[in-house]
Simulated scan of single mutants.
Amino acid sequence: MKKFPKEIEDFGNAFVTAQIKRHSADYDPEYRILRSEVLADIDSAGEAIRAFKKCSIKSRRAFAAWVTLTNRK
């Protein structure tokens, strides 16, 4: 991830954070979240997407290929 522009790195980190929260919401019956936290998360996701879209198409395509082809643990 360090080889990509900061905006793409931030997008990837935001995605992982959102995915962790989604898994908690789906599978942890004890998980609770406030409406204000959800709204803040929606704003953060929107900001990450807008910044991602400002990156060059070349960088976005490279990121898509990297995500698809990289072994993740």
Rank of each mutant, 00 (worst) to 15 (best):
L34W: 05
A45H: 00
I33M: 13
K2C: 01
D28Q: 05
P5M: 00
R32K: 15
Y27N: 12
T70I: 02
V16W: 05
K58H: 10
G12K: 03
A14R: 15
D28K: 13
D26N: 14
S44D: 14
S59A: 15
A18G: 06
H23S: 14
G12R: 03
V38G: 00
D10R: 06
T17A: 14
L69S: 04
D43H: 11
M1K: 06
I20T: 11
K2S: 05
P5N: 03
K21I: 14
E30F: 12
A40K: 10
G46H: 04
P5Y: 01
P29F: 11
K6A: 08
D10Y: 07
D28H: 08
P5D: 07
S59L: 00
A40N: 03
A51P: 03
A51N: 15
A45D: 01
R22P: 00
M1F: 09
N71W: 07
N71E: 11
K73I: 06
A65P: 00
N13E: 09
M1P: 08
L69C: 02
I57V: 05
E37Q: 11
M1H: 06
V67C: 03
V38F: 03
R60I: 09
I42T: 02
I20F: 06
R72H: 10
K53M: 12
V38E: 00
A25V: 05
D28R: 03
K54G: 01
I42V: 09
